[in-house]
């Protein structure tokens, strides 16, 4: 029963990664990292419920809760940054922000 969950977690993670690399809107890019975190959380809960050996433990579920908290902290930071950036340039296109680069 473990493998379907791992597969779904991997699909979520890879979809998030592809979205992060290909999309240029800063909010969508952040949501893609959130999707990667959801894949990880699914992975952890699946490993906690169906361990490869031994009895199931709560460790995976505990980390899933902590990860949700970390993801929420990152979401707060991301939205603050997005608001500030929008005030400066009026766009959320990542390509519009190229002030810093090699000469």
């Amino acid at each position: 029963m473990l493998l379907p969950y791992l597969l779904l977690g991997a699909i979520l993670f890879v979809l998030g990664l592809i979205g992060f690399v290909t999309r240029r809107n800063l909010i969508i890019m952040f949501l893609c990292t959130e999707m990667m975190f959801q894949g990880i959380i699914l992975n952890l809960v699946a490993f906690g419920r169906y361990p490869l050996k031994g009895a199931p433990t709560f460790d995976g579920q505990v980390f899933a809760l902590f990860l949700i908290a970390v993801a929420a902290a990152e979401a707060a930071l991301a939205l603050a940054l997005v608001v500030l950036l929008y005030r400066y340039q009026g766009t959320l296109d990542a390509n519009a922000y190229r002030m810093l680069k090699d000469e």
């Binding site: 975190f37 952890l44 361990p51 433990t57």
Partner: peptide, 15 residues
């Protein structure tokens, strides 16, 4: 996210 994904597999191996 990549770091946490790696840790989740290590946890899976050890339980």
């Amino acid at each position: 996210a990549v770091f946490a994904y790696g840790l989740s597999f290590l946890y899976g191996v050890s339980g």
